[in-house]
Structures are given as structure tokens and as C-alpha cells.
Design a protein around this nucleic acid. Sequence first.
DNA 1: ACCTGAACACCGTTCAAGT
DNA 2: ACCTGAACACCGTTCAAGT
Lengths: 239, 239
Amino acid sequence: MPAAAIPAPPWRAPKKAPAARQPLSAEAVLSTALRLVDRDGLDALSMRRVAQELGTGAASLYAYFANKDELLEQLLDRVVGEIPLPRADAPDWKAEVKRACFASRNVFRSHRDLVRVARANIPTGLNSLRYAEALLALLRGAGIPDRICAWAMDQMSMVIIADAVEQSIHEELGRRTEAEPYLNQVRDYLAALPADEFPNLVALAPTMIEGSGDERFQFALDLMIDGLATYARPSGGAA
Amino acid sequence: MPAAAIPAPPWRAPKKAPAARQPLSAEAVLSTALRLVDRDGLDALSMRRVAQELGTGAASLYAYFANKDELLEQLLDRVVGEIPLPRADAPDWKAEVKRACFASRNVFRSHRDLVRVARANIPTGLNSLRYAEALLALLRGAGIPDRICAWAMDQMSMVIIADAVEQSIHEELGRRTEAEPYLNQVRDYLAALPADEFPNLVALAPTMIEGSGDERFQFALDLMIDGLATYARPSGGAA
DNA sequence: ACCTGAACACCGTTCAAGT
DNA sequence: ACCTGAACACCGTTCAAGT
């Protein structure tokens, strides 16, 4: 039995601070950044803080990422990789599209407000490309014309991201103010408007905040997918 | 004729720099801020720069705005005020909704990437409220149920803002790189992907960037409004 | 009472000087 | 050749000290 296998006695253990646990790599940087976002939110993510967490200076990160934007882009792609890919051979394409949309939303929601970095479409990360490829396969398999497929994919990601962003902002807002639930405040504000100038807003104040987030998202998806279905092959199923 | 009315001889005129032309007010701050955004984009807007433009220090702005976010919120509301209100008594509600959506998009587009600040819905500025009121009057007039009206209004602003944000990002990107048009680069990138792993993306590379922004926006709106129409009073016109 | 210069606690990014 | 401390040029916000 080699002596090296014997554990060092604990009382003489940590010679140095346990800072540099990982030898620094793009992977290590991304993991650390994601952990920080999950813990403190996107606004708290700075190059300096990520570096500090890794036991080095901010300048060292620029060996792996050209700038902060590139780091964020790759961070988002990493998260996109957590979304299960839709199956092109699903028996019911509409149900599969809807499932994929909900899955995407759930993944984005599980990483605080990171989704806010998803702005310009047509992302170029590997995971994003794989996802786009799978979705296109599903839509084309349903007999939807190419041009409509491309537009629909854009539309869908727009709706998903917008919904996730809105939700995340409400949550971050609610996290800061521990007073009344945010939506109740909105309702009360609208209800208190002068009824002669804003009759419809006052009348709809309770309705405006009604319906869980899921219901609203469902509504948006149905509007879009049902519209999409008019372009699909009549059968309604994949080949 | 009082002596004070005689203009000072020009050769002894400007004692001080002509900086403080306006006596500083929320209005003056907003005008200046909007001018800066229109000229240099949202990222170039800082409290310090706005103050400098007004010939004072950044601290002075905090007499009129609690913080930068509040300034941005009011700035956006000011721009929303430029959108013509939809008319509730329009003969064809679908056409009127579509016109309103295009008008909103055009106004947002005319102020660089300011639209990026429009994130959480349910804004509370006066102009935003007036717009929401007018849109609700139009939708309810079409016989659409209250709950659907509320959701649809959210959906519409989501689509408009997302489209304007995407467009503005492409434009800001194109402003920085004077190389090939951005969309052409995207197409070439997609076309160059390995065809065995990404057959659909490669096949659709030309289609993906096809269709002007207007066509795509039109498509998104039609999808939504046609879906909305299934909830409306069958007549299709306002009362 | 009002205004604001200077300070505070941060940023992203660069680069010369070290190893 | 690689890494990084320190510097640069900014931020938003606060507040004491002036008028």
C-alpha cells in the first residue's frame, strides 16, 4: 500500500486557503457564474465577483472569454442545454410543441433572471442550435411550410422568453419588497384610478391579475399554435 | 424706454458658459435624456452625462427622480405618449388593433434601443394607462370577454416590444460592425453547419432570414389577432 | 432651504510588470 | 509564455458642507 494513499492527519491539513479548488477553465468559470446567478440574481454577476469566487483576479477570465457578453451568451447556452429536446416523431405535434414550450419556460424559470440575457434571437451556441434543429424537424414533419416554420420558431421563442422575463422580474421585485404581493398592489392601483377617465381599466382591475401564470401562458401558446395548425398538413399527425 | 431693455454690447457678452439654458426641471431632464438616447443609444445614457449636458452635477437629478430606473420609466412613458391612441369606435376592430400595433412598433423604433427598458408589463405612467384604456375599450367593444381582453393586451404588448427590441439590437449591432449586413452573416453561419447533425437548419438557412421585418411582424400579429377573433362577437364590427 | 462637489463603493477592460 | 496586480475610465448614489 503506497504511503501516498494514507490521508494526511486532519490537524495539519489546510496549508493554503481552499480557494483554487479548480484549476480554472472555461467550464469552471461558467459553473461558478451560474452558481452566482442562481444564488444572487443576474445583477449581482460581475467579472470581479466570479473571479473572486475562483480565487483569482478579474483579468484572468479574459483568457477564456473575450468579454462579459460572451460569458453571458455561453452561460445562457449552457442553460438551454438543460431543456429536453422535442421529438420529431411525436404522435401529436401540437402537444409536443406545447410540451417543449412549457419545458423551456420551466428551465429558464429555474435560473432566476438569467433569461434576461436572451434578447436577440438566432443564438449561435451549440445547445441552442441543437434545440432549433429539433424544433424545426418537428414543425416540418407536421407539414408546415418552411417559411412558416422559421417564423413560428422565432415567434415561439419570443413568447417563451418574454413570459419568463416578465415572471422573473416580478419575482425579483417581490424578493426585494416583503410587503403585500406585487400583483395585489397592481390591482389596487388600477382600481383606484379615476373612473371617469379610465372606466375600462377600473372595471378590469380584478380581471387583469386573474389567472395563474400558467393559464396566461397556456392562452398565449394556444393562440399561436392553433394559428400555426392552419398551415399544417390536415391529418394533424406526423408522417 | 428702460435701460434694461438695451441689449448688452456683444463684446462683453458671455460672462459664463451658456450651459444652464433651462432652469432644470423634470421636463428638462427628460428631454435631455431622450435626446441623448436618440443620439447615442441607451447604453450611453448615464446620470452623469445627462447632468453634464444640463450644466450641473449628477446629484442634482435626484431632486426630480428617485433613481435612474425611475427616470427611465418616465422616459419610456413619454415615448408611449407619442403613439396615437386606437379608436374604440373604429368600424373594423381587427384592422384598428393591427394599425395600433404597427403604430406602437414604429414609435419604439424611432428611439433607438430605448424600448429595451420596457420589461415588466403593467406600466403605471399616465400615457401608458391612457393607451391601455383605449385598447381595452376597443377590444371590449368587439365583444371579447373581459378575461381574454386583459390577457390579449398583455400578449400584444409582449409581441410588439419583443419585436422592437430584437430589431433595435440588430440595428445597434449593425451600427458597430460596418462589415457585411448582419443577417447575411447569420445565413452563412447556419449554411456552414455540419449537414448531418443539422439538416433542417442548413436547409432553412436562406429561409430563416427571408421576409422583411414587416412581413414577420405581420405574421405574428395575424396569428394572434385571428386567434383573438374567435372570441369576438360574430358580427366582426364594433357596436 | 436648496443645491452640489466630492466621496464611496462599485463596474468592465487593459496592460505593464512580474513569474 | 503565461498570469495578474494595479491602473484606467467610467458607473449610480449619498451626504456633508457650502450658499
